[in-house]
């Protein structure tokens, strides 16, 4: 299998280096190191980009026979794409879509976009195809590049009792990331929103969660909520702490926090009111006891 991969790599390199002015300037290829798989077995297909010039935007869709294959997981860890417009995901049965950009562009061979973990369900030949793909040049105009597409296929045979799994060992959390609060008249009716994106060099960021709170003492009582970027803030007065948690495919988490833009008045602290109420009760109780003693 390594031999086959080497041949593919060599052909791609030769096309890119020996024929720089050929009819295509880039190729989007689906790679797998498996040709034969058994029912119940998992295998990985990688979407990789070869480009002789700088490509800064790419999109497309990957189709596969839904009755023969199940897309168990889509991993975008270690991707050459920095910002996903639509992160690679199963849009409908048998179809995965993706689109994203890389500032400055990527060029050269074997630029990994993402990988898909498939599980074979049924015997037969299963073709995995990329279509409606587009790659744009890093020229400030979004010039479309002629893009060659290369599909892949596997032959599925009867399975055994111990099918191979493609579990990934990932113990590192996503990288530290920055939160920014902004607003724009064109979205969310001009309300404040928060933007964030984290990268993970292992399994990729799987989801984000958020919590907003005004008082740190009770933050543990606030539940995490699933969130997508951008997210309109609940506290438009910007007096809350905001925490965003990025969780990768293996469950490792990284939390980033941003302080309130505006400070709270003393009477807006929940703890202050609790203390105040407690003191009032104590005063009232003590006064009552004193009154009874000296009555």
């Amino acid at each position: 299998m390594r031999f086959i991969l080497r041949i593919q790599f060599g052909i791609g390199l030769a096309i890119l280096l020996l024929f720089p002015f050929a009819s295509f300037a880039a190729e989007l290829r689906l790679n797998t190191d498996r040709v034969d798989v058994r029912v119940g077995e998992e295998f990985i297909v990688e979407a990789v980009l070869f480009a002789e010039g700088a490509v800064n935007a790419v999109e497309g869709e990957i189709t596969f026979p839904e009755d023969m294959l199940v897309a168990k997981e889509v991993r975008d860890g270690n991707s050459s794409v920095n910002f996903w417009i639509e992160n690679p995901h199963l849009e409908s049965p048998g179809k995965i879509i993706f689109s994203g950009i890389t500032p400055g562009g990527v060029r050269g061979v074997n630029n990994l976009l993402f990988s898909i973990v498939f599980e074979a369900k049924k015997t037969g030949a299963a073709a995995i195809s990329v279509q409606y793909a587009k790659a744009l040049q890093n020229d400030g105009k979004g010039t479309k590049i002629s893009l060659a597409l290369s599909d892949t296929a596997v032959e599925i045979t009867m399975g055994d009792s111990n099918p191979r799994q493609e579990a990934m060992k990932d113990v590192a959390p996503p990288e530290p990331f920055v939160l920014s609060v902004a607003r724009d008249a064109s979205i969310f009716e001009g309300n404040w929103f928060i933007v964030f994106t984290a990268s993970d060099k292992g399994s990729g960021v799987f989801r984000y969660e958020i919590k907003e709170y005004r008082s740190g003492q009770f933050s543990f009582l606030i539940p995490w909520r699933n969130v997508t970027n951008p997210h309109v803030l609940s506290d438009q007065a910007l007096k809350s702490y905001v925490m965003v948690r990025a969780i990768d495919g293996a469950g490792n988490a990284r939390v980033s926090e941003i302080d309130p833009v505006n400070t709270l008045a003393w009477n807006e602290y929940g703890l202050h009111w609790l203390i105040f109420t407690g003191m009032l009760c104590t005063i009232a109780y003590t006064a009552f006891k004193l009154w009874r003693r000296y009555k």
């Binding site: 890389t102 562009g105 020229d139």
Partner: peptide
């Protein structure tokens, strides 16, 4: 569409 994002990626400052 993707063209707008490609233009943005070209002028990106971070």
């Amino acid at each position: 569409d993707l063209v707008d994002f490609s233009i943005m990626a070209f002028y990106w400052t971070g």
